[in-house]
Amino acid sequence: MGIALTGSGSCTPQVSLDNHGLSQIVETSDEWISSRTGIRQRRLADAETSVCAIAVAASKQALEMAQIAPTDIDLIILATSSADDLFGTASQIQVQLGATKAVAFDLTAACSGFVFGLVTAAQFIRTGAYQNVLLIGADILSRWVNWSDRGTCVLFGDGAGAVVMQANDRDRLLGFEIRSDGTQNACLNLAYRPQPKELVPGVTIAQGAYQPITMNGQEVYRFAVKKVPEVIEKAIFRSNISVEEIDWLLLHQANQRILDAVAQRLKIPPEKVISNLANYGNTSAASIPLALDEALRQGKIKPGDTIAAAGFGAGLTWGATIFQWGR
């Protein structure tokens, strides 16, 4: 059974914080941030905005583009690291969409989440288990940022993106490669910090809280510029095509220097690189589908175009997929 990507949608909060505004919070400047990351501003969710709400908004757009009803969806996968409910948010999305026959679950692989979710959804379609899958990447990492740490707070923004994947006679998912390396887990964390609590003498449990994001920026940069081109090359090889046949390079929107370095190593010209991080920052699992949807609605990506998409981030995890847009 083949796979087609037939609809996309996205949603970002209305509130925008540019680099000048951020310089009022921490010691930084627009020049410092933009020269090191390429980010000019980011969208931030207010206290009333939930991951569920922006995910539902993005999903409705994707369903409309794909021209299918919520009741046609068999499976909903939410890629997120900032769920509204630690037990899962996908089922809330299912209810709000009215996707009454869909099974729904969360998938956590940080900034690689959308790519991992796409590969996971593909297996359900290929086996014939499901026909129509809604894949969402959504994160509100502003909840988990230390806003006095200029090494991390300048990077992240909030948003959601969604795609509809459908069973198709012609297979548009050409190949993929996904990887993990837990030995580098400490490079990027949003960790739980336990605090001992004695219930009765001799019985102590741990009750604590999750701590803000911490990151070794130099190590993550070195990891990304080395591993991401390799995994894209493997996915291209599995797809039985050449780099020259790639129409668009769609990377996780983490840092413009990473995007440029990966494209240079793969010998992909800058005009084929999709980048919107200047306006949104790093939206984690949302970044790839958000950039995809924007490029589609701007008319850049056309039906039949071949896209190399790659995610990378905490875990550490990384992966790439090669797919063609449309049926």
Rank of each mutant, 00 (worst) to 15 (best):
E48Y: 08
E27N: 13
A102W: 06
D74L: 07
L63S: 09
S59T: 07
K101E: 11
L5A: 01
V119P: 02
A99F: 01
L118M: 15
A69V: 01
L75A: 08
T37D: 02
R40A: 04
A47C: 01
V103Q: 09
A58P: 03
R40N: 15
I54D: 00
T71H: 08
S34C: 13
G7E: 04
A109C: 03
S16C: 15
D74C: 06
V115A: 01
D85C: 03
A47V: 01
Q67H: 12
S81C: 15
P70W: 10
A47S: 14
R42V: 13
L5R: 02
L86I: 13
S35K: 13
S23Y: 10
Q94R: 14
S8A: 15
G9T: 00
L107G: 02
L17E: 07
Q14N: 09
G117D: 05
A102R: 06
F114M: 10
F87M: 14
E48A: 11
A66S: 15
L5H: 01
Q14A: 12
F114Y: 11
C11Q: 09
A109Q: 01
C111Y: 00
S82Y: 06
Q61G: 06
A90W: 12
A66Y: 04
K101I: 03
P13H: 04
Q14R: 10
F105L: 15
T12S: 10
T120Q: 10
I73N: 01
I68V: 15
A62Q: 13
E48T: 15
K60W: 06
L75H: 06
Q94N: 08
L86G: 05
A102V: 08
S81L: 13
R36V: 07
L44V: 14
S35W: 06
R36C: 03
V51S: 05
V119N: 05
G113Q: 02
T71S: 14
S23T: 13
V119C: 10
Q94S: 11
G88S: 14
L75Y: 07
V103C: 11
G9P: 06
C111M: 04
D74H: 05
G113M: 02
S112Q: 03
V95H: 11
T89V: 11
Q92A: 12
I54Q: 02
F87T: 12
V103K: 09
V95R: 09
K101Q: 14
K60L: 15
S35G: 02
G38R: 07
R36N: 04
I33T: 03
V26N: 13
Q14G: 10
Q41W: 00
D106L: 05
I25H: 04
L17G: 01
I93S: 11
D106H: 01
L97D: 03
D85P: 00
L78P: 07
L63T: 07
E48F: 07
L75C: 12
A4M: 02
T49C: 14
T49W: 05
E27H: 04
D30W: 08
T12I: 14
Q94H: 09
A57P: 00
V56L: 12
G113W: 00
T28A: 11
A90K: 14
Q61T: 05
D30H: 12
F87I: 11
L22Y: 10
G9S: 00
L75M: 14
